[in-house]
Amino acid sequence: MRNNLHLNILYQFVESEDSAGNNISFYKIIHFFSEVGVVTTTTLKKVYDNYRPPGAVSDDCLFSSLDQLGHFAIDICKEVSAPEVFLLSAQDYNIGLDSCNDIRSFKEIFRRYGTSIENPDGGHRKKNIFGKLFN
Protein backbone atom coordinates (compact mmCIF):
# COMPACT_ATOMS: atom_id res chain seq x y z
CA MET A 1 0.00 0.00 0.00
CA ARG A 2 1.39 3.40 -1.00
CA ASN A 3 1.05 6.22 1.43
CA ASN A 4 3.54 8.64 -0.06
CA LEU A 5 1.43 10.08 -2.87
CA HIS A 6 2.04 13.74 -3.54
CA LEU A 7 -0.96 15.84 -4.36
CA ASN A 8 -1.05 18.59 -6.96
CA ILE A 9 -3.48 21.50 -7.01
CA LEU A 10 -3.71 23.76 -10.03
CA TYR A 11 -5.67 26.91 -9.36
CA GLN A 12 -6.76 29.98 -11.24
CA PHE A 13 -7.15 33.56 -10.05
CA VAL A 14 -10.51 34.81 -11.31
CA GLU A 15 -11.77 38.37 -11.48
CA SER A 16 -15.46 38.68 -12.15
CA GLU A 17 -18.65 40.53 -11.28
CA ASP A 18 -21.37 39.44 -8.91
CA SER A 19 -25.08 39.71 -9.68
CA ALA A 20 -25.12 43.29 -8.32
CA GLY A 21 -22.35 44.33 -10.69
CA ASN A 22 -19.61 44.55 -8.01
CA ASN A 23 -16.10 43.44 -8.86
CA ILE A 24 -15.11 40.25 -7.10
CA SER A 25 -12.02 38.06 -7.21
CA PHE A 26 -11.29 34.57 -5.96
CA TYR A 27 -9.04 31.55 -6.36
CA LYS A 28 -10.60 28.56 -8.08
CA ILE A 29 -9.25 25.00 -8.08
CA ILE A 30 -9.19 23.77 -11.67
CA HIS A 31 -7.37 20.44 -11.27
CA PHE A 32 -6.59 18.37 -8.21
CA PHE A 33 -4.79 15.08 -8.69
CA SER A 34 -1.87 12.83 -7.83
CA GLU A 35 0.11 10.45 -10.03
CA VAL A 36 -2.63 7.81 -9.82
CA GLY A 37 -5.69 9.89 -10.64
CA VAL A 38 -7.93 12.80 -9.80
CA VAL A 39 -9.02 13.39 -6.22
CA THR A 40 -12.64 12.31 -5.93
CA THR A 41 -15.36 14.89 -5.63
CA THR A 42 -16.55 13.12 -2.46
CA THR A 43 -13.24 13.85 -0.72
CA LEU A 44 -13.16 17.40 -2.07
CA LYS A 45 -16.74 18.12 -1.02
CA LYS A 46 -16.24 16.71 2.44
CA VAL A 47 -13.28 18.98 3.17
CA TYR A 48 -14.59 21.97 1.22
CA ASP A 49 -17.83 22.03 3.23
CA ASN A 50 -15.86 23.79 6.00
CA TYR A 51 -14.85 26.52 3.55
CA ARG A 52 -18.02 26.86 1.52
CA PRO A 53 -19.47 30.37 1.76
CA PRO A 54 -23.05 30.37 3.09
CA GLY A 55 -25.57 30.04 0.29
CA ALA A 56 -23.03 28.87 -2.33
CA VAL A 57 -24.59 26.28 -4.62
CA SER A 58 -21.84 25.64 -7.16
CA ASP A 59 -19.67 22.52 -6.93
CA ASP A 60 -16.58 24.65 -7.69
CA CYS A 61 -14.00 25.02 -4.92
CA LEU A 62 -13.53 28.79 -4.57
CA PHE A 63 -11.40 30.63 -2.01
CA SER A 64 -11.21 34.30 -1.13
CA SER A 65 -7.47 34.22 -0.44
CA LEU A 66 -4.38 32.14 -1.08
CA ASP A 67 -4.08 31.67 2.66
CA GLN A 68 -7.51 30.03 2.74
CA LEU A 69 -6.57 27.81 -0.20
CA GLY A 70 -3.41 26.81 1.67
CA HIS A 71 -5.42 25.81 4.74
CA PHE A 72 -7.75 23.80 2.56
CA ALA A 73 -4.74 22.03 1.03
CA ILE A 74 -3.46 21.10 4.50
CA ASP A 75 -6.90 19.78 5.46
CA ILE A 76 -6.98 17.61 2.34
CA CYS A 77 -3.51 16.30 3.14
CA LYS A 78 -4.69 15.40 6.63
CA GLU A 79 -7.88 13.82 5.32
CA VAL A 80 -6.09 11.48 2.94
CA SER A 81 -2.78 11.21 4.82
CA ALA A 82 -0.73 12.61 1.98
CA PRO A 83 2.68 13.87 3.05
CA GLU A 84 2.69 16.95 0.82
CA VAL A 85 0.67 19.01 -1.64
CA PHE A 86 1.99 21.27 -4.40
CA LEU A 87 0.01 24.41 -5.14
CA LEU A 88 0.50 25.94 -8.55
CA SER A 89 -1.25 28.85 -10.22
CA ALA A 90 -2.29 28.62 -13.88
CA GLN A 91 0.10 31.50 -14.57
CA ASP A 92 3.09 29.64 -13.09
CA TYR A 93 1.95 26.46 -14.84
CA ASN A 94 2.25 28.30 -18.14
CA ILE A 95 5.76 29.52 -17.28
CA GLY A 96 6.71 25.92 -16.47
CA LEU A 97 5.06 24.60 -19.61
CA ASP A 98 7.02 27.05 -21.70
CA SER A 99 10.28 25.50 -20.59
CA CYS A 100 9.40 21.82 -21.00
CA ASN A 101 9.33 19.73 -24.14
CA ASP A 102 8.83 16.19 -22.94
CA ILE A 103 6.81 14.25 -20.42
CA ARG A 104 9.68 13.96 -17.96
CA SER A 105 10.14 17.72 -17.65
CA PHE A 106 6.35 18.22 -17.63
CA LYS A 107 6.04 15.95 -14.60
CA GLU A 108 8.40 18.24 -12.71
CA ILE A 109 6.34 21.39 -13.24
CA PHE A 110 4.43 21.20 -9.95
CA ARG A 111 7.55 20.41 -7.95
CA ARG A 112 9.69 23.08 -9.62
CA TYR A 113 7.24 25.94 -9.96
CA GLY A 114 4.66 25.17 -7.27
CA THR A 115 4.53 25.96 -3.55
CA SER A 116 4.98 22.92 -1.38
CA ILE A 117 2.79 22.56 1.69
CA GLU A 118 3.65 19.71 4.03
CA ASN A 119 1.18 17.75 6.06
CA PRO A 120 1.92 18.72 9.70
CA ASP A 121 0.82 15.21 10.74
CA GLY A 122 3.42 13.61 8.50
CA GLY A 123 0.90 11.86 6.29
CA HIS A 124 1.45 8.24 7.32
CA ARG A 125 -1.39 7.70 9.71
CA LYS A 126 -4.20 6.30 7.60
CA LYS A 127 -3.54 3.21 5.58
CA ASN A 128 -6.36 3.16 3.06
CA ILE A 129 -5.26 6.09 0.95
CA PHE A 130 -6.44 4.60 -2.35
CA GLY A 131 -9.91 4.03 -0.99
CA LYS A 132 -10.13 7.54 0.35
CA LEU A 133 -8.68 9.33 -2.60
CA PHE A 134 -9.68 7.62 -5.76
CA ASN A 135 -12.68 6.06 -7.42
Binding site: L10, Q12, I30, A90, Q91, Y93, N94, L97, D98
Partner: peptide
Protein backbone atom coordinates in the same frame (compact mmCIF):
# COMPACT_ATOMS: atom_id res chain seq x y z
CA UNK B 1 0.44 29.44 -26.98
CA UNK B 2 -3.26 28.58 -27.00
CA UNK B 3 -5.10 28.97 -23.70
CA UNK B 4 -7.92 26.88 -22.28
CA UNK B 5 -10.90 28.53 -20.58
CA UNK B 6 -9.14 28.03 -17.25
CA UNK B 7 -6.11 29.95 -18.46
CA UNK B 8 -3.92 26.86 -18.97
CA UNK B 9 -1.55 26.71 -21.92
Amino acid sequence: IMMSEEGMG
